[in-house]
Amino acid sequence: MAKDTHSLYQHGTLALLVPGLYDGTQTVGELLQHGDTGIGTLSGLDGELIIDQGRVYQVNSAGAVRQVSADEKVPFANVHYADFQAAGSISGTDYAETQAALLQALGSRNLFVAIRLQGTFTAVRTRAITKQQPPYAGLAAMAARQHEFTRDTVSGTVIGYYSPQVYAGAVSPGFHLHFLSAEHDFGGHILDLTVQNAQLALQKFTDFQLHLPTESTAFLTQDFGGDILGDIQKAEN
């Protein structure tokens, strides 16, 4: 059976992380049945995931990188089957300029698009959150529990997604990008970067498949009141 390269699959929502629903509700093995490329986090917000060519890598709060096993669980992740199309190159840009170049390449702010930017970066600053234990604090409190890492002149790959504003809550609107070095010894959720020279590839989707944790009592009974979008923006930025 041909792989569906037109659909973006997501398990969970960013909104469910806001009140602290961090328990894993899908195994990595099950997640990989829906794609070979993507991003996410492990149970307890344990670090940042980069999924590339069917391999799942975790950057933990100590900055260490390891390959994740199929039986580990995620509360939230995005995956798709890679079918990237070349979209030019980017060079000599800071993070704001890089995002502006990405937006221009997208052509529309109303589509889900996967982004792959591979090359050499003058500087990259990332973060990963320390694994949390129950009872969980809400997502807004996680900014104080993240660890930041920096690397100068590093080769690697940016993998992530652009999500339209209209789907805010289910997703974090705008860019959600993770980094993995070519040596697999550095990475995480991108906070800042400067591109030296990198090749850009994009993959636009016609379908967005949202999979909800319907067997999670915590999810089924949670009242998602309050400033959900505000808390998401604080955590992502």
Rank of each mutant, 00 (worst) to 15 (best):
Y81W: 15
Y81N: 11
A82Q: 15
A82V: 09
F84V: 13
F84S: 12
F84M: 14
Q85I: 08
A86M: 12
A86C: 06
A86W: 01
A86T: 07
A86Y: 06
A87V: 10
A87I: 12
A87E: 03
A87G: 03
A87F: 06
A87M: 08
A87S: 15
G88H: 03
G88Y: 01
S89H: 07
S89Y: 06
S91R: 14
S91I: 12
G92C: 11
G92N: 14
G92S: 11
T93Q: 12
D94K: 08
D94W: 12
Y95A: 05
Y95W: 15
Y95V: 06
A96C: 06
A96R: 14
A96D: 15
A96K: 11
E97G: 08
E97F: 07
E97I: 09
T98G: 03
T98R: 06
T98F: 11
T98H: 08
Q99R: 13
Q99F: 14
A100S: 07
A100R: 07
A100D: 06
A100T: 14
A101D: 13
A101C: 12
L102W: 01
L102Q: 05
L102K: 05
L103I: 07
L103P: 00
L103D: 03
L103F: 02
L103N: 10
Q104F: 05
Q104K: 14
Q104H: 10
A105F: 08
A105M: 03
L106F: 13
L106G: 03
L106N: 04
L106Q: 09
G107Q: 02
G107P: 03
S108Y: 01
R109Y: 00
R109C: 02
R109L: 05
R109D: 13
R109V: 08
R109M: 00
R109H: 01
N110T: 00
L111I: 01
L111T: 08
F112W: 11
F112R: 01
F112H: 05
F112L: 03
F112M: 02
V113C: 13
V113R: 00
A114D: 08
A114W: 04
A114G: 14
A114F: 05
A114N: 09
I115S: 02
R116H: 09
R116P: 02
L117W: 06
L117P: 07
Q118P: 00
Q118I: 08
Q118W: 10
Q118C: 08
Q118V: 09
G119C: 06
G119E: 04
G119R: 07
G119V: 09
T120K: 10
T120L: 13
T120E: 14
F121L: 09
F121W: 13
F121N: 02
T122M: 09
T122F: 04
T122K: 09
A123P: 00
A123N: 12
V124P: 02
V124M: 10
